[in-house]
């Protein structure tokens, strides 16, 4: 069993920060995914996560990628700016939301690739992150500092989500009704965008910018195919997220697969099983 060997052997310190970061990220993303799926914000998440590539490019061009907190702050700021740019463009009558997301997504990806290319020339002595690492992530990229940073950000996300749960749910269920009941829907939409962006930035390190959205879609999609009750959906979503992350890690250790891809494949597998189970029970 590679899994036991990696997690209890002499190299355990190399793996545990990434494992804990992944489990924290999976928990937070699974909870937020319920709102993401119900409010049809998956493609917004896709745009924001890909924008992270531009943020990494900026950090690399500035030569600060050796400092995890500085890099994460730059990526976070860039992603939040991209999220609000998407929201601002989408509000214009002449721009459809998917067009706005497409423009920001490809713009940030192109900017990131140019800046990473330039960073190799500008800072030849520094360890500039490679394409593959940024796009697909790895649990090996997380040290204890990143794990602690992730735990802190996750606690902030959970605290804000709990504090504002009532207006967020009212907004998600019936936006015009919520506005008429005094909910500041613009502020709530912005808050949800920021929370999603924070979660995506956390997820990027361990599963990469390409696969980060998976954690914000698949857990809730699975839970919603199994239940139509609020609490069971929340619980099932978190269980799916953590279960998919754990199964993916084991798969990654045992088969020597890339960790991010293994986690996402596990989540897809769980989703497929849930759909098949639902379809077969509906036929009976």
């Amino acid at each position: 069993m590679n899994t036991l060997r990696y997690l209890t052997g002499g190299s355990a310190d190399l793996f545990w920060p990434g494992v804990l970061t992944l489990l924290i990220v999976a928990t937070v993303c699974s909870l937020l995914s319920v709102v993401v799926v119900l409010k049809r914000m998956a493609f917004v998440g896709q745009g924001v996560s890909h924008a992270g590539f531009g943020g990494v490019g900026i950090a690399a061009a500035l030569g600060v990628t050796t400092s995890a907190p500085v890099t994460l702050s730059i990526v976070l700021a860039f992603c939040i700016a991209s999220a609000f740019l998407i929201a601002a463009l989408s509000r214009r009558r002449d721009t459809e939301p998917d067009t706005a997301i497409g423009v920001v997504l490809v713009g940030a990806m192109a900017l990131g690739s140019v800046l990473l290319h330039l960073a190799h020339q500008w800072h030849p002595a520094e360890r500039v992150p490679g394409w593959e690492g940024v796009l697909f992530g790895s649990i090996l990229f997380s040290g204890w500092a990143e794990a602690m940073w992730s735990a802190g950000v996750a606690a902030i996300i959970l605290a804000l989500a709990t504090w504002f749960r009532r207006p967020v749910l009212a907004w998600a269920f019936d936006e015009s009704g919520a506005e008429a009941m005094g909910v500041r829907v613009g502020a709530i939409r912005s808050l949800v965008l920021v929370l999603i962006t924070l979660a995506i930035v956390l997820a990027m390190k361990v599963v990469g910018v390409v696969l980060a959205t998976a954690l914000l879609v698949l857990p809730a999609a699975t839970a919603l195919s199994l239940s139509d009750r609020w609490r069971p959906v929340l619980i099932l979503s978190v269980l799916c997220g953590i279960g998919g992350a754990a199964a993916g890690l084991v798969l990654s250790f045992e088969a020597d697969w890339p960790s991010g891809a293994a986690v996402v494949l596990s989540l897809v597998g769980i989703y497929a099983i849930a759909r098949i189970t639902r379809t077969s029970s509906a036929r009976r």
Binding site: L38, K39, T162, W163, F164, R165, R166, P167, L169, A170, A172, F173, D174, E175, S176, G177, A178, M181, G182, V183, L224, S227, D228, R229, W230, P232, V233
Partner: peptide, 24 residues
């Protein structure tokens, strides 16, 4: 305008409106 895929009961939809504005 309401999201009908929302996994809540009719009672929870009413409670959601009643509890809006109560302390978190």
């Amino acid at each position: 305008e309401a999201e009908l895929a929302f996994p809540i009961s009719a009672r929870e939809a009413v409670l959601m409106a009643i509890e809006l504005g109560t302390p978190p």
